[in-house]
């Protein structure tokens, strides 16, 4: 069953504090978090979170398209070795 709308999106409280602190600092940093269950909110856009996958923190650069998804979706817990020989990487 889907979550009731009246509750609003779920976010662990400490994430909001960490995000606010990161926005205040001038230095770019990876905000280490363990809360894979938290929903990505609009105020997180532009920040980089290191989402714990059980072994290490996977950096996730939050974009507008990610709003509404959970952090855990972008931090896989199983190993995948891709092939893409012609893969291009874009520096944002």
């Amino acid at each position: 069953m889907a979550r009731s709308i009246w509750k609003g999106p779920f976010v662990d409280g400490y994430l909001l504090k960490k995000a606010d602190a990161a926005r205040g600092s001038s230095r770019s940093e990876v905000i280490k978090i363990w809360s894979r269950r938290s929903t990505i909110l609009p105020q997180f856009v532009g920040l980089t979170f290191g989402v714990y996958n059980g072994q290490k923190h996977i950096p996730v650069y939050v974009t507008e398209e990610m709003v509404g998804h959970k952090f855990g979706e972008f931090s896989p817990t199983r190993t995948f070795h891709g092939h893409a020989a012609d893969k291009k990487a874009r520096r944002k």
Binding site: S28, V30, T48, V51, K56, H57, I58, P59, V60, Y61, V62, T63, M66, F74, S75, A89, R90, R91, K92
Partner: peptide
């Protein structure tokens, strides 16, 4: 969550850095 660089140090486990 965006392109990452996987970096292997001279010893120890690898780490990821955002490609920004």
């Amino acid at each position: 969550g965006g392109d990452l660089l996987e970096i292997r140090p001279p010893r120890g486990p690898t780490a990821f850095l955002p490609f920004t």
